[in-house]
Design a protein around this nucleic acid. Sequence first.
DNA 1: AAAGTTATTAACCAGATAGTTAATAGCTGA
DNA 2: TCAGCTATTAACTATCTGGTTAATAACTTT
Lengths: 216, 216
Amino acid sequence: MGKRVTTTRRNIRDLARTRERILKAALAEFSARGFAGARTERIARRARVNKRMLFYCFGSKRALHAEVLRRKIADKAEAIASTPEDLAAALKYWAEIGTGDGDWIRMHEWEALEPGAWPTVARAERRRLFVSVHTRLRRAQLAGAVAPGVNLEQLFLSVIALSAFPAAFPQFTRLITGFGPRHPRFRRARARFLGWLGARMAAVAPRPLRKRRKPG
Amino acid sequence: MGKRVTTTRRNIRDLARTRERILKAALAEFSARGFAGARTERIARRARVNKRMLFYCFGSKRALHAEVLRRKIADKAEAIASTPEDLAAALKYWAEIGTGDGDWIRMHEWEALEPGAWPTVARAERRRLFVSVHTRLRRAQLAGAVAPGVNLEQLFLSVIALSAFPAAFPQFTRLITGFGPRHPRFRRARARFLGWLGARMAAVAPRPLRKRRKPG
DNA sequence: AAAGTTATTAACCAGATAGTTAATAGCTGA
DNA sequence: TCAGCTATTAACTATCTGGTTAATAACTTT
């Protein structure tokens, strides 16, 4: 419809673009409804593509889902690998990753719940990411920015927990704070609290580094 | 077949018992597969009851689901209301609630994800529960067991986050620690860490109360 | 410009699934 | 013991859904 100048043809063929549109629409659908709840026909409509194309491009709903997840992880890889070493900063940074990209947490949440064979998709890539952050934490600990002797695995898990939970369980967030996890007021309060908590977890003595502020 | 002594009758009619069996089977099914993924026929088979009985007793799949959730919350109400006031103890206590009852977290996780109108089910009951814990935390804070000035809502949310996350996202738990959230070794390490963290969050000065142990 | 390739489409299908109909078997009270 | 109620059952249905068939329209190659 009139985007083209010279040509009047309607159906331009571009498989790469079609794939992209499908992937984008599929991410939205899978994130919103999970694998079981997602409808191929809805993905197709959203992508403005014939349903048949999903199967032509990806073979099956399951394969499409795997590809979507793989991409999501690849997208976030860089951001994750550059987690700040300072604990308080790391907590806020992860919280930002979490609430900033709703699909990110939801895709993992669906993965946790749905029966699909989960460690399959992008296992190696995830392992690599985890190791890079873990190494970074270790370095931070040696440099004195994290209390010595703390179990770093548990600490890492807790960083993710503290930052991801509000978006992962919006019902709790709303029930307890009165605001949704993406509401600016909640985010401010959360950031403040995480800053306080990060400082407490950081060093041997909890108040040497910075001048004391009112706690979160 | 031959459980009965005097009678030889097979089909004893007992609506109350039928309801219970359905509810139990439905909890298992909904917890495992969520609302969309759950199959009424599977629930019926699991309960060893004619599928028709689900609709006879509860009207619809949705209504059955709501009833299951309401019950689950009612079941846990007492345990939640008696959260210990000591922060470290509270963290461990909640972790025990979380990993001890897999359905508890999963039902909330499904609720977070699935489109069903969620604040509807047992809203008042949940509010009541939240308030009771919040009050308890405030008392603890006044008594000096929680750092003064801390945002209690954020703290409460974090207690839940820290305790529930590993079971809610078993993929992360396994990836980071090498063990599933219910593995004894994981639980030990987690409890230790939570104890340490709880103590750090608790008081103004982090080491006055107990003799120092090696941190988690 | 014709032959070959490939992206795209409409129409279709088999299996599943929530919910229903209508008949029946067990219980209760008189 | 019989009439009425109610818990239980088998069989059915309308709809939905992932996936397919087969034809076609748009590019490429020669």
